[in-house]
Simulated assay, not measured.
Amino acid sequence: MNVTFRPRWLLALALPLALAACGDNEPKQRTAFSEFLQTRIVDKPGVHVPKLTPDETQAFGPYTEHYAVITDFNGAMDAAVKPLGNLLQKGAVRSLNDVTARRDDIKAVQTGLNDMGTQLQAQKAKADSAHAQLKQPEDLKVVYDKAFERTVSVPADTFLAVLPQISGTLDSSLKIADYVDANKAKIDINGAIVKVSDPKVQAELNAMLADLNTQAKTVQQAQTQLKTVMLGR
């Protein structure tokens, strides 16, 4: 009887060993994923979020889901900020006549920028929440956190800082348009030539235009910073 049951006991003892052997892939998967994050994202200037090849997906195993937190955010960010170029072009003003004649365009651009900011905030919050829930060994977490900051936190925070600055410039443009409309009897605009009959109105208008020019320079600097973050140069 003892001989009959011995193979069963041996099989029972062998099962945990077989299951443990299956888990041996984790260190290799972790190493491969960590090296990918370090060399393909952290060590590169700018924001780089490479698409995984089938071989990389297989090599990273379950860590591909961790990478999806980064790729999902970047896909959503790209979609959210895609209209930015067209909005900036639509909202660009080159003269006082532009400011007064394109009030509706400026309002539409401001609405678009506000919507963009709302989308970005929501996507960043979603990514931050997913990031916080990840269970990672400490050695991988150190590298992953750097990659997450480079591809999620920094670009999102930079965009969210730039958008209100652009919106503030548009708000100043609208205030100028309203001021000109309220004092149209004293302000004559003929193309690029502006004549003001009241010295007080002239001084107030000049101050508002000077403030707008200062804000425009600040926005240009912010756009340069954004380019540096995204492209690394």
Rank of each mutant, 00 (worst) to 15 (best):
Y63S: 01
T64Y: 06
T64Q: 15
T64A: 09
T64H: 06
E65W: 11
E65A: 13
H66I: 13
H66G: 10
Y67W: 12
Y67P: 13
A68Q: 08
V69A: 11
V69D: 09
I70G: 04
I70N: 02
I70K: 05
T71N: 13
D72P: 13
D72K: 10
D72R: 05
D72M: 02
D72T: 08
N74A: 01
N74M: 06
N74W: 09
G75V: 03
G75D: 15
A76I: 01
A76L: 07
A76K: 03
M77F: 08
A79M: 14
A79Q: 10
A79N: 14
A80I: 03
A80N: 12
A80W: 07
A80L: 05
A80K: 06
V81P: 08
K82L: 02
K82N: 09
P83I: 00
P83F: 03
L84H: 05
G85S: 10
G85Q: 12
G85I: 02
G85P: 07
N86Y: 14
L88Q: 12
Q89R: 06
K90Y: 04
G91A: 09
A92M: 08
V93E: 12
V93R: 14
V93K: 12
R94I: 13
R94V: 11
R94N: 15
L96F: 01
L96C: 03
L96D: 06
N97G: 14
D98L: 03
D98M: 02
V99M: 09
V99G: 07
V99K: 13
V99P: 15
T100V: 15
T100Q: 14
R102P: 11
R102Y: 08
R102E: 10
R103L: 00
R103M: 01
R103N: 07
R103C: 00
D104W: 02
D104N: 11
D105T: 13
I106Q: 15
I106N: 14
K107T: 06
K107F: 07
K107W: 02
K107G: 04
A108I: 03
A108W: 09
V109D: 08
Q110H: 15
Q110P: 15
Q110D: 11
T111K: 14
T111R: 14
T111F: 13
T111Y: 08
G112L: 07
L113M: 14
L113S: 14
L113N: 10
N114L: 06
N114C: 04
N114W: 04
D115Q: 13
D115E: 03
M116T: 15
M116N: 12
M116Y: 15
M116H: 13
G117M: 06
G117I: 05
G117E: 12
T118N: 02
Q119S: 11
Q121W: 08
Q121H: 13
A122M: 02
A122S: 07
Q123L: 01
A125D: 15
A125V: 04
K126H: 09
K126W: 02
K126G: 07
A127N: 11
A127R: 03
A127V: 01
A127L: 09
D128N: 08
D128V: 07
D128C: 08
S129V: 00
A130K: 05
Q133C: 00
Q133H: 06
Q133R: 05
Q133M: 09
L134H: 03
L134C: 01
K135W: 12
K135R: 10
K135D: 12
Q136G: 05
P137S: 03
P137H: 12
P137L: 04
E138C: 02
E138Q: 11
D139V: 12
D139Q: 13
L140T: 12
L140A: 04
